[in-house]
Amino acid sequence: MPPNSYISNAGRRAVQDPKAARWLLTGVAVIFLLLFLVLPVLLVFVGALAEGVGAYLRALRQPDALSAIWLTLAVAAVAVPLNTIFGVAAAWAIAKFQFRGKGFVVTLIDLPLSVSPVISGLVYVLLFGARGYFGPWLAEHNVQIIFALPGIILVTLFVTVPYVARELIPLMQEQGADEEEAAVMLGASGWRTFWTITLPNIKWGLIYGVIQCNARAMGEFGAVSVVSGHIRGKTNTLPLQVEILYNEYSFTAAFAIASLLALLALLTLVIKHAVEWQARRAYSRPQEENVA
């Protein structure tokens, strides 16, 4: 063998599949993604605009549709901030303190992810429904939870509990409590330590968690479906409205509303991507500058 062949081999990695196999594998993956992910999303928009832009906009301006949009925004506006506060508090407690039953708390936070959303909805019906444990008492005091806004908010809170906390726990555990201890030793109050040290350190993880939490809060179907009662113009969120319209064969209207949710999903993806990019940059920037 001439010595040159060693040299040409040196550039190749020791373990590498033949070209044909690489193209085949990549091709299969791309076709699969196009077929099962991109195409359906595109079809949503195609369906929504099937009868023209005018019909699309008309469908979105229906009172029921507007009410569904408002309801969805309202639910997210309550559930997301509450779960953000809870998530930060829980992650803080779990990452920075030692206490008994910590493993149990972590498991508990994950519970909504392992329980079917329909079950989560049913649990709340069992608690607050007309025949539930607190039902008679609530009826006596004229408080309606099930088939009303409070119920929808409660189940949404339940299913979105894990998102912020799960994002922050590993991050804060990795960062440890050293910087906070240093800040307190330098005379900072607990509040100041949180705002000037903890929060900047978890910023990107927190935003990421909030985005995921928001996407789930707006898109939740199963649990909300159980407690909402499907009252048109009152307790239908966007996903429920899509289902109703679809069952009534109003395809254009159904797709129009669905396109809003699809847009939300796309927006979430874009923000997620930007946040990930930012976080990577924030992490690696100093080293790059160091080289320069």
């Binding site: 050293d178 910087e179 201890e181 240093a182 900047p200 350190n201 924030a282």
Partner: peptide, 9 residues
Amino acid sequence: FQHYALFRH
């Protein structure tokens, strides 16, 4: 602190 605990940001 042993590992300095400087405020990284």
